[in-house]
Nucleic acid binder design. Structure first.
Lengths: 133, 133, 133, 133
DNA sequence: GTGGTCTAGACCACG
DNA sequence: GTGGTCTAGACCACC
């Protein structure tokens, strides 16, 4: 998994890291049960402070995406469930994206095709191939 | 248009304001050409400082969502066009949302239905077409 | 002389008016001794308040570009002289423009050719054709 | 780099600051990659509020003259490219300056020599070429 | 009346 | 220690 950071971005580095890891898991580059690099390893690879990576891992743990075991390090959790809190957050974000797209002149069809295309690129195990039709 | 702020959120107030106004325009509560409240008015209503509202308006102006006229105050711009920069930003955000949804166990169909439902609620004038009956 | 104003610009309207009149005189569309429209006339034409036009005329008078006579109205002054104050102001502005152009990657030759081209388009009576060689 | 402000000027302080920094970079007093003073430092030096300096830095960043890095503070960008928007803005300003100069009795040659002299003082690395000996 | 600017002083997130 | 955000209250330029 390749990590690319932009230290000039207004998005905090630990959030950029978190986003890239989440996307990586979603894409299937990291599978449930697999180990993430150690904090020090990732910090060295990405050229950031270990504190920053630590913050990222704690965030991912709090969100239920990874588990942290004192002995085995960090591992990817199996696919979870979308609770009410998460659904509300998702709906709010989609509402904002929809509003922006609408104001930028995108039509419903165009927007939905993009959603479909992008979701399809996610982890086949979760996003489903022929099994959901 | 009702504004609700969470002063404890890590999202800056001026961004929360921006998001709510964009969503409000998207929903059709504010139409192209219509006036937004004055800086002072909105500041009083939302219980924040005028500078905070000013920052929000400058941001919306820079993004092309509103115009600020010396005489009439701020007004909503007509629907714009989705340039390359915007599309890239949208794709990145959808990719992240898709990954999260996938990891939370949502299936493609469920995710897309949600996208469709939410986009449909947007301003019909912009979301356009007679196709969604 | 055609006046085009942008009420959404951050440049005050009375300054926009001033700039357009100065450019108009420079281009030779208005010659020394000729009359400018009355305050009311110009206000009506440009669709602005008479106060605004008045402010413009007072500014042009203070700068020595026009004279205001109670009976004849406003008339264009003959070409003046570049005093020390003016030269200093001009140098400062050229310095800023040069710095910006340099930082935007323009080469000296390109910049000077542009200066030459634009000055040449000014009032031939002042900018001189064969008469100054 | 020496900063001199005129608090009585009608030009906002944050714009005066911006202009002096741009000129400073253009003159080569600050080179690409070098750091600008911290917000607090410059605020203390210039005797203004930190928010004013912050506004200046945000403006310079938006214009592409500096980058703001979370870790290193603000640094000067390498020379950029003159896009269409910039060229239009430059032409308009030169047109106005030319008109004024013309009305103040300056001849073409005099005006162009001044342009040449001032541009020549800019950062040789940017103003480039061996041609101006 | 409007938006734009500025200050002094404060708190927070980030790395 | 850095930049980012926010407040309360003020003054100004513009129309």
């Amino acid at each position: 998994m390749l990590i690319t950071l932009d230290t000039k971005s207004s998005i905090p580095i630990y959030v950029q890291l978190r986003n890239q890891i989440v996307t990586g898991i979603g894409r299937g580059e990291l599978k449930a049960g697999e180990s993430l690099p150690t904090v020090r390893q990732l910090a060295a690879d990405a050229g950031v402070n270990t504190m920053t990576v630590n913050k990222t891992y704690q965030l991912l743990k709090a969100e239920g995406f990874i588990e942290i075991d004192r002995r085995k390090g960090a591992t990817v959790c199996p696919v979870g469930t979308a609770d009410a809190d998460y659904r509300e957050k998702l709906e709010k974000e989609l509402e904002l994206l929809s509003a922006e797209a609408s104001l930028k002149g995108m039509e419903k069809q165009e927007f939905l095709q993009l959603c479909e295309k992008i979701f399809r690129q996610m982890n086949p195990e979760n996003a489903g191939g022929v099994s959901y039709d």
